[in-house]
Amino acid sequence: MSERARLLVIEDVTVRYGGLTAVDAVSMHVEAGRVTGLIGPNGAGKTSLVDALTGFAPVSGGRVRLDGNDITRMSAHQRARRDLGRTFQSIELFDDLTVRENLLVGASRARWWSLFRDTLGPTRELASRNIAWTLDLLGLADVADRLPTQLSQGRRKLVGVGRALAANPRLVLLDEPAAGLDSDESEVFGSHLRALTEHGITVLLVDHDMRLVLSRCDTIWVLEFGRVIASGTPEAIRADPRVIAAYLGDRSASTTSVGGANE
């Protein structure tokens, strides 16, 4: 594996909810310009880790650095402004805003004068190139002026991804973006991931869909019971006996279409 710049570095991060340790001193990193996968069985602490990285769960120990800057104590919106985007497992769109407006929320940055400008100044038409690119990439251009509640579950997922991408983040954490998509949709979605890295967006993909993760990721980290049990290329992960025991069960390691532990 060639040496690349480490965009996100996680050092001994621990997340506790009451007496339960969801993430136990996890150290890992995400290299710039790549698609990194994070997999693990249910309850392994994947979403807790994503929440901790993006400021939605309290970090009780360890450090998170984004491009060398310590972001461990920053609030969620500050991290988002530091080019760290994320999606949610449960989608969580702004249901009263159109698809385009959902994306615009991600793309805009508040300034102290925004309120004065936006109430007193003339209306600006924000024709951000980024929005158009995102809508095109995800095939949402035809529904840009619809409300999310009018779309299918799969396309709602894509709006969630689009909203995170519209901010043109350097790193985007996708929390189970393919859950709820059928296998065709999932395939199409996987092909978008490459377009992201070509556009300069690094991806951390958290998903249950083993086929997607194994086929699209450059590097994979495996969590179990809040700890990292393996990391490496898809080939190495497929062959790793601990991963097979923990995650893939007794099935043959050579099968790439293992269903995993779907919810």
Partner: peptide
């Protein structure tokens, strides 16, 4: 939640 994740204070 989603607002904060999209950089809204």
């Amino acid at each position: 939640r989603a607002a904060a994740a999209n950089g809204v204070n």
